[in-house]
Design a protein around this nucleic acid. Structure first.
Lengths: 241, 241
DNA sequence: TAGTGGTCTAGACCACAAT
DNA sequence: TTGTGGTCTAGACCACTAG
């Protein structure tokens, strides 16, 4: 090893090399990584240094470690989606994955705001999905999802009915895009006529707006998701520490 | 060491011992801890094991480490408050601490809901503080803070004007209560007449409700804080990863 | 210069999972 | 039984801070 003489620590370089392998698809989500000792031999560092790199990756939820089994590349299982990327919880404290009803999918030019948030060239093509998500049988979330057509080619060729509830799993399996991080901006807004109709509330009644920008493993923004939630029976949970 | 034979790992026991010292006030926020080697001698474990314990504490923001200087008990500096416990950000991406104008402070019996959320006996005494917080000179947040009178004795003896902007610093210095973790529940609501007047918005206009339960080092809930925010020019930021 | 945390190594032993 | 990650140790060297 000892790639760069006087810069980042070894374990950090090892970590970057492992991420690189995942980005390149050498190791895919769900795959078992080589053992710590094996990786140490491959990279020419001690097992302890590999361990430190994997510890960091595990703390960032990019790999999962299981004593006796090995270290696995993190995959967007339903559990992980619910735990990390879905924060709407019932007033009684129960959190469950909503069902989805797709309302439409279109391909169009990106709006100026979208080119900024997704770092796209002007007039780049995007694909928009609109859907309504229900909890306990009732519509609760009106959602618009915008992704670059370049990163998700032919996504709009898929029949609407074939879109899975868990889109991040689809991104992973069909487009080699792993969502690893997201930033959400929340605010309260008044329901538009469209949202009011979809969610079965009065026009103008307060809705929880959630604007999410989701990033891939390399930190590139790849999805813009705008949700309007009826928070009469639900809340958004955020843990600070 | 080797306190408990076959249970938690050594570094975890060391971690608990260090937390215990902080809770007991042997080491206070801002204090410099003994060095790793010294702690290792004191507890009868290797320096590496102490390091692991401190690494965990640092990842939980309970201690701060500075190369060449030492390890310090985390304190509620303005920066830390802004970074960890204040998530309202201007539409232009700038985050700054709001100013506060106190509206009142009362001592009363806890409501049923408060006894549940703060795990208090029925009819326990609480102290409530109401205040309006401003950003860039304009009122943005109407806030109600409820704390158990038992944990914050004579808080209501303080003149309203003496209440600092950063309450968590006051908790720490005057009452030996360190806030280390908080859970927030967010939803959209319609402005009440009171909130509308305080925030200068129309009655019924959408406000961002934030219900926070804050915990001390031992995980005991010690503060209930309900904020109503005008999110026309601001948003609540949440980072998922 | 002395003391601190940060990195890296090497090796031992344990707990767990699969075969 | 074998191989994995988890814990613990001991020691070396580096980078930063302060007197």
């Amino acid at each position: 090893m000892k790639t760069i003489g006087g810069s980042a620590p070894l374990y950090s370089q090892i970590k970057d090399l492992i991420i690189e392998q995942i980005v390149k698809g050498v190791w895919s989500p769900g795959d078992l990584l080589p053992s710590e000792t094996r990786l140490g031999q491959d990279y020419g560092v001690s097992q302890g240094t590999v361990r430190k790199a994997l510890d960091v990756l595990a703390s960032e939820n990019l790999v999962m470690r299981h004593q006796g089994k090995g270290t696995f590349v993190a995959a967007h299982t339903p559990d992980r989606a619910l735990f990390h990327f879905f924060h709407i919880t019932s007033n009684n404290g129960v959190r469950q994955m909503p069902s989805s009803r797709e309302k439409g999918m279109t391909r169009r030019r990106a709006l100026r705001e979208e080119t900024l948030k997704l770092r796209l060239p002007t007039a780049a093509r995007v694909i928009q999905i609109d859907r309504v998500r229900a909890l306990e049988g009732r519509p609760v979330i009106a959602e618009s999802i915008v992704v670059p057509a370049k990163i998700f080619p032919d996504l709009d060729r898929l029949p609407l009915e074939d879109l899975p509830n868990n889109l991040y799993q689809l991104y992973e399996t069909r487009f080699c895009v792993t969502i690893s991080r997201a930033v959400e901006h929340l605010r309260a807004i008044a329901a538009s006529p469209q949202d009011a109709a979809w969610l079965g509330v009065e026009k103008g009644s307060p809705l929880q707006l959630i604007e999410r920008v989701a990033h891939n493993l390399s930190g590139v923004p790849v999805e813009l998701r705008i949700s309007r939630c009826n928070t009469r029976d639900y809340y958004y949970e955020s843990v600070l520490d």
